[in-house]
Design a protein around this nucleic acid. Structure first.
Length: 959
RNA sequence: GCGGGAGUUGCCAAGCCUGGCCAAAGGCGCAGGGCUUAGGACCCUGUCUUUUAGGAGUUCGUGGGUUCAAAUCCCACCUUCCGCACCA
């Protein structure tokens, strides 16, 4: 049993003492790796560990490749969730406080302080940082900062002034989910049940009734041409409301919603639904009169509480009309006459439907009442069919012949322009409650600040940056481009939360996804801030302009900022040395926001030479195949896991379970398996020593050749950040080769294998070290090294060590052993004699010819046979045409490189090689092996097997 | 709806970009053996069907196509997961 924790702390201390991860400019090439900094509202769990571990492996790998790697970390205090948490602590929220106690194990003393948001942030900040150190992340901690540090605030102010001066920050109105009690926008984690407050935009069509306006809410403004009547619910008590000087008749719920739509509302009177029944209203744009009818499906809470009826295309309306004709509502005779006269007005032509689609679909769904639950479904089906495929008919004026999807927005704007319509936003999952208990609404904010991501030029630059950038994995590049396309103006300031005040409007705080887009540049400053060489006083925009953009005169800047000119120069040089970011790591959930904003803002602020070079995106982590969540109770805090299993096994378990973009399934089974593997490797490292040079046998040469292949494959996987694959090579791939090697040396009773194995182990440990840095140091030490493996160079392929002849000889032995084993398996005989026949000389010649042809792409059997027969040396093929076919198959079933090696090395003396089998068969089956040539007249061949021999595929007889 | 994925041998999961080392890695599970006082851990062997000669047959969501050759390329379809904004 290995004590991971003591090994890990031992090496962590050594790293710290040697300050190896502290990166300052030097003569080496630099590599700047960053990860999205954490939001400290809870401790890290295994899931967070993935992105940081990936970045750390990347950093460590690049360091071993000879780069001066900077890998820094900051903490994102900005935002509202921590604020909300503090408020809940103030209110003594039991659920939250219990979570602090039981899940996060926060000491009682600290929980008491959590009424202050900053205390929460700084508590978890330290917790997360400690976890990162314990995980062995090679972070330069001198550059740590938080987003509420005063210098950071100055930096963000600079960023925003810069954006504003480029007209990329604009002001406008914007609908948001809103809590009327808190007077604040609500987001998902502000609501009870974590419901995302999404909303739909309805068009209100204004129908005129005397001096009143009766607005109806619709998603289909184009159906105004097909309206035949209005629906009210007779039992609803409607309000007469003064809305910006007009008298509207709407439900009480609607009146309340309108208040938040930036309108002046004054309730004047009320009127019952039944009193409206039978009255006529004027249809806007059409100028004809229609009647108001009663319907029970009309809900006062939806829209305005009044619905316009389009019976030809709306199943609800069609069915309500059918219902009313049965006169169960006791309508007066003259109203009933009107009802009977109503004919649906067909305005949309859709393939597969006739004149009255609503009728057809209600019949198809077998609907018999307006209260049928299937009506929703029917509506949905018809609506989407008509929306995507339907065309407006001739009775729709200027819109005739157009597709609904193309014309919908135009119809809306047309009616709006005539002041015959308005807009109403409505929450989708009504009711949504704020954590404070109040019911949320949609509010239109008027003086909201936006980052104008819809700016065309900006988008174009973003596309070109993304297209020039390295994006790993490549699969996700399209997604980035698509995000750039659909991104619109984004609100970049809010009224509450921690963060930086908007420099020109101190009522607003820069929103958290907008103050975290170019902070990688700030890591350069953070080192000097932490050393107290930069203070927030006197720090103006000219400072940032000078450092980051190279604008201004250093003397002037130095004096206005009261900073020594040499210091200013040093900072600037450090920035130009480390920037741009070479790799930005993050989870894939940040693709549609942070990562894309990161690109946008870099483009806007920095010159092209500082645009980011690469983005690396990873998937999330599942726990035993399930999503981690507080409610499932399957969140393992990272630090707990480290304590139990050790940092290295966790790092490996996370990395080996999935390739970059896939979700990684973490489970304890895997951790145990890995732990075991590491223990075995460590043991091997203490056994095999570097002895004096002994003569290399064939199998040593073979193993060392294979090792080169391993290095090549691993390195290429690392370069593509295919860490699962790379780790797999290092940890497992080599085992079967190692086994063969041991089997061979064992059979030969060799005792001089230590050096070769030591050589192999050293290479593997070096390649393991970015992944499992602590235990790799321990192994490295056991292998007899004094220096750190972290400081060693990544193994490179030694082409001289690749012995293609040894490779082929061993392959022949292996495959022949496999064949023998196969025969024994099938026949179940216990061998007393094993006889092997190597193929005739002409076959070898024919093989080479076929091989060359196949490499050239000629594998037509007929053509091959013809050319072989035409040559005297290989004319024997005539008697044995099957040989050609089998040989071609043999060759095709081999990798292309090995075909080429075979072509290059040419004929090998199989008989001589196969004699080496003897030691193996003796060991495995206690039988000696005899080798004959097919053409040997003296051979023992009672079953006439020898003639089936092919090159690299000797015939075998077992008795 | 828009956009992006995924479907592989009992399960999880690689392979697909770059067609031929593919009956298809690895892990788990299962079976047998070793080790052990026993259990666990560990190690070995096996794990589509068939076969007393290293072979053959049928497989990679479904159906077509391209090719000497398809899990891999193309087309269509079915099923399924994720993101869609003021939120870190």
């Amino acid at each position: 049993m290995i004590d991971f924790s003591s090994i890990e702390s031992k090496w962590r201390k050594r790293w710290q003492d040697e300050k190896y991860f502290e990166a300052d400019p030097n003569e080496k090439k630099k590599f700047f790796v960053t990860v999205a900094y954490p939001y400290p509202n809870s401790p890290q769990h295994i899931g967070h560990g993935r992105t940081y571990t990936l970045a750390d492996v990347h950093a460590r790998f690049m360091r071993m490749c000879g780069y001066n790697v900077l890998f820094p970390m900051g903490f994102h205090y900005t935002g509202t969730p921590i604020l909300g948490m503090a408020r809940r602590v103030q209110e003594n929220d039991k659920e939250l406080i219990d979570a602090f106690r039981t899940i996060y194990k926060v000491p009682e003393q600290n929980i008491k302080e959590f009424v202050e948001p900053v205390k929460i942030a700084s508590y978890f900040h330290q917790e997360i940082k400690t976890g990162m150190i314990e995980m062995g992340y090679s972070i330069d901690w001198r550059r740590e900062f938080t987003t509420i540090d005063p210098v950071y605030n100055k930096f963000i102010e600079w960023q925003f002034r810069k954006l504003k001066s480029k007209n990329l920050v604009i002001q406008g109105s914007h609908p948001v989910g809103w809590c009327p009690k808190d007077q604040n926008p609500v987001s998902q984690h502000d609501t009870i049940g974590d419901v995302e407050p999404s909303f739909t935009e309805y068009v209100l069509i204004k129908f005129r009734y005397n001096k009143y306006i009766i607005p109806t809410a619709t998603l289909r403004p184009e159906t105004i041409f097909g309206v035949t009547n209005l629906w009210v619910n007779p039992v609803t008590l409607y309000k007469i409301v003064d809305v910006n000087g007009e008298n509207w008749i709407v439900s009480a719920e609607c009146a309340r919603k309108l208040e938040f739509m930036d309108k002046k509302i004054n309730i004047i009177d009320e009127i019952s639904g039944s009193a409206l029944v039978g009255k006529t209203v004027r249809v806007p744009e059409r100028n004809d009169q229609i009647t108001i009818l009663p319907a029970s499906f009309v809900k006062s809470g939806n829209g305005t509480g009044v619905v316009m009826s389009v019976p030809a295309h709306a199943p609800f309306d069609y069915q309500a009309l059918e219902d009313i004709k049965k006169n169960t509502m006791n309508l007066e005779q003259d109203v009933l006459n009107v009802v009977m006269a109503i004919k649906p007005i067909s305005i949309i032509q859709t393939e597969g439907y006739g004149e009255i689609p609503a009728k057809e679909i209600t019949e198809k769904f077998k609907i018999d009442s307006q209260n049928s639950p299937r009506l929703e479904e029917a509506t949905k089906e018809l609506y989407s069919k008509e929306f995507y495929e339907g065309r407006l008919k001739n009775n729709t004026g200027q819109f005739a012949g157009k597709k609904i999807t193309d014309v919908k927005e135009d119809v809306k704007n047309w009616i709006l322009q005539q002041n015959n319509a308005d807009v109403l936003f409505e929450l989708n999952d009504n009711p949504i409650r704020c954590r404070c208990g109040a019911e949320c609404v949609v509010k239109i904010l008027n003086d909201q600040w936006f980052l104008d991501y819809s700016n065309k030029n900006w988008k174009e630059d973003a596309h070109s940056c993304i297209n020039e950038m390295k994006i790993l994995p490549e699969d996700i590049r399209n997604e980035f481009n698509h995000v750039v396309d659909w991104l619109r103006e984004r609100a970049c300031a809010r009224q509450h939360g921690l963060g930086t005040k908007l420099p020109w409007d101190k009522d607003w705080i820069v929103e958290s996804l907008s103050d975290s887009v170019i902070y990688m540049a700030y890591y350069i400053l953070a080192k000097y801030v932490n050393k107290k060489q930069i203070t927030p006083d006197n720090l103006g925009d000219e400072f940032f302009d000078y450092i980051f953009l190279g604008d201004g005169d250093s003397k002037k800047v130095a004096s206005s900022c009261k900073i020594a000119e040499t210091l200013l120069g040093n900072i600037k040089n450090e920035f130009t040395y480390f920037y741009p970011v070479n790799a930005r790591h993050s989870g894939r959930d940040l693709v549609p926001n942070h990562l894309t904003f990161f690109v946008f803002n870099h483009i806007a602020i920095f010159p092209k030479k500082y645009w980011p070079e690469a983005i690396v995106v990873n998937g999330s982590v599942l726990m035993d195949g399930k999503k981690m969540s507080k409610s499932m109770g399957n969140i393992i805090p990272l630090r707990d896991a480290i304590q139990i299993y050790g940092a290295d096994p966790i790092r490996l378990a996370i990395l080996i379970s999935a390739e970059l973009l896939q979700d990684a399934d973490f489970n304890l089974e895997a951790v145990k398996g890995i732990k075991n593997k590491l223990e075995n490797m460590l043991e091997d490292c203490s056994i095999y020593k570097l002895n004096e040079k002994s003569n290399l046998h064939q199998e040593d040469k073979w193993l060392l050749s294979r090792l080169q292949q391993l290095v090549l494959e691993t390195t290429s996987a690392m370069e593509k950040m295919r860490l699962r694959e790379a780790l797999h090579y290092v940890l497992y791939q080599f085992d079967s080769d190692m086994q063969w090697y041991l089997k061979r040396t064992n059979a030969k009773n060799r005792t001089d294998v230590s050096s070769t194995i030591h050589n192999v182990l050293s290479t593997r440990v070096a390649m393991l070290s970015p992944f499992a840095p602590h235990i790799a140091e321990e192994m490295w030490e056991k292998l007899g090294n004094i220096d750190l493996v972290s400081k060693s160079l990544w193994p490179s392929v030694d082409n001289d060590a690749i012995d293609s002849i040894a490779l082929q000889r061993e392959n022949l032995l292996k495959s022949t052993m496999d064949d023998i084993r196969n025969i024994l398996k099938v026949t179940k005989i216990i061998p007393k004699k094993i006889i092997i026949y190597t193929s005739d000389a002409w076959k070898n010649k024919a093989y080479q010819k076929i091989l060359i042809n196949v490499i050239k792409g000629e594998m037509n059997i007929g053509v091959l046979i013809k050319s072989l027969i035409s040559d005297k040396e290989t004319e024997h093929v005539k008697k044995n045409p099957d040989f050609v076919k089998k040989t071609v198959n043999d060759i095709l079933s081999e990798p292309i490189e090995s075909r080429e090696i075979k072509a290059k090395t040419g004929f090998i003396d199989e008989k001589e090689i196969l004699l080496e089998l003897d030691s193996l068969t003796q060991k495995d089956f206690d039988v000696n092996v005899q080798v004959f040539s097919e053409s040997d007249p003296q051979k023992y061949d009672p079953k006439n097997k020898a003639r089936t021999a092919r090159p690299y595929k000797p015939a075998i007889l077992i008795e």
